[in-house]
Amino acid sequence: MGDLFDVVVLGLLALLPLINPPTTVALFLTLSQGLGREEKNQQALRTAINVFVIMTLAFYAGELIMDVFNISIPGLRIAGGGILIIIGSRMLFPQPSQPTTANNDGAQRANFSFIPLAMPSTAGPGTIALIISASATFKYNTTFPAWVLVVAPPLIFLSTALILWGCLRASELIMKMTGPSGIDAISRMMGFLLVCMGVQFAINGSVDIAQTLINNNAQLFRHP
C-alpha cells in the first residue's frame, strides 16, 4: 500500500500545478452568475466528472485517438488556445443583456461544465500531453509492482476530480464575500487572463511546429 500511496501523491503533485483549481474557481464564479445554489452544485459536480473522464480517456486511449484522427500535441494546443481566446474576449467585453433572450442566455450558461471549465481550463492541452506521456512511461516502469501501476491512475484522476469539486463547491462562500461588483471585476480579469493563456497556448503550439520543421530540415541536409 505504501507504493500505491507514493504513486498517487506523485501523480497529484504533477497534475495539480497544471490544473490550477483556483483559476477554475474564478472562472466558475464568473460563468455561474445568476444561477441558483442547486444549479451551481450540479455544474460543479458535472465539471468534476468531465475532468475525470477526460483524464481517464487521455491516459488509456489518448495516444490512440490522436493517432487515428492525426492530431498532434501542437495542434491540440493551438485549438485550445483559440477556444480560450474566444471565451476570454466575450468575458472581457460582455455584450449588454437583452430581456428577450434571458432564457436563452440561461440555457447557454447551463452548458459551461465541459467547455470551458473542464476543457481547456482544467484538463487543457498541457495536462493531456502530460497524461499521454505518463501513460507511455507507465508501460515500461519496473520500479513499482504491476498492480500499483494498474490501480494508481484511476485513483489519481479521481482524487484530482474530488479536489476540484470541493474547490468549486466552496466558490459559494467566495461569491458571498465579493458581491456583484467583485464578480464583475473577476470576470473581466479572468477574461484578460484567458486571452493571454490562449495566445500563449497558440504560441507554444506554433513554436513546437517550427522546431519540428527545423529538425526535419536539418536531418534532410545531414542525409541527402
Score class of each variant (00 low, 15 high):
residue 122 T to F: 03
residue 107 A to F: 14
residue 87 I to K: 04
residue 137 T to C: 06
residue 61 A to Y: 00
residue 114 F to Y: 14
residue 67 D to F: 00
residue 104 N to W: 11
residue 137 T to I: 13
residue 109 R to W: 05
residue 116 P to A: 09
residue 48 A to D: 09
residue 48 A to Y: 01
residue 127 T to I: 10
residue 94 P to G: 02
residue 107 A to K: 14
residue 115 I to Y: 01
residue 73 I to L: 14
residue 111 N to A: 15
residue 83 I to T: 10
residue 68 V to A: 09
residue 86 I to V: 15
residue 44 A to N: 06
residue 135 S to T: 03
residue 68 V to D: 04
residue 127 T to C: 11
residue 54 I to N: 07
residue 44 A to I: 01
residue 107 A to C: 08
residue 102 A to H: 07
residue 130 L to C: 07
residue 87 I to P: 09
residue 56 T to N: 05
residue 94 P to M: 03
residue 47 T to W: 02
residue 50 N to I: 02
residue 97 S to N: 10
residue 120 P to K: 03
residue 52 F to Q: 13
residue 134 A to R: 08
residue 122 T to R: 06
residue 76 L to Q: 04
residue 106 G to H: 13
residue 87 I to Q: 10
residue 132 I to A: 09
residue 111 N to K: 15
residue 98 Q to V: 11
residue 134 A to N: 05
residue 96 P to S: 04
residue 62 G to T: 00
residue 69 F to I: 08
residue 81 G to D: 08
residue 113 S to G: 04
residue 96 P to N: 06
residue 44 A to K: 06
residue 58 A to V: 00
residue 118 A to M: 06
residue 129 A to T: 11
residue 127 T to H: 00
residue 114 F to I: 15
residue 137 T to S: 13
residue 131 I to H: 02
residue 99 P to D: 15
residue 54 I to R: 10
residue 77 R to I: 03
residue 61 A to Q: 03
residue 108 Q to S: 11
residue 79 A to Q: 10
residue 99 P to F: 06
residue 106 G to F: 10
residue 79 A to V: 11
residue 97 S to D: 13
residue 44 A to C: 05
residue 76 L to F: 12
residue 66 M to F: 10
residue 92 L to S: 11
residue 109 R to D: 10
residue 106 G to R: 15
residue 84 L to P: 04
residue 94 P to Q: 02
residue 94 P to D: 02
residue 128 I to N: 01
residue 84 L to K: 03
residue 67 D to R: 15
residue 74 P to T: 09
residue 60 Y to E: 04
residue 123 A to C: 14
residue 123 A to W: 05
residue 64 L to P: 01
residue 51 V to I: 13
residue 47 T to A: 08
residue 97 S to H: 12
residue 98 Q to Y: 05
residue 125 P to D: 04
residue 112 F to D: 02
residue 86 I to A: 14
residue 129 A to Q: 14
residue 54 I to Q: 06
residue 98 Q to T: 04
residue 48 A to W: 01
residue 47 T to Q: 04
residue 92 L to H: 12
residue 130 L to V: 07
residue 62 G to V: 00
residue 138 F to A: 05
residue 88 G to S: 12
residue 70 N to V: 12
residue 137 T to L: 13
residue 136 A to W: 00
residue 112 F to Y: 12
residue 86 I to K: 14
residue 57 L to D: 02
residue 133 S to P: 03
residue 79 A to F: 07
residue 107 A to L: 14
residue 107 A to R: 15
residue 76 L to D: 05
residue 120 P to G: 05
residue 102 A to T: 08
residue 76 L to T: 03
residue 57 L to I: 13
residue 58 A to E: 00
residue 62 G to F: 00
residue 114 F to P: 09
residue 111 N to V: 09
residue 75 G to P: 09
residue 70 N to K: 12
residue 75 G to H: 08
residue 90 R to K: 14
residue 131 I to K: 01
residue 64 L to Y: 07
residue 111 N to S: 13
residue 116 P to L: 06
residue 54 I to D: 03
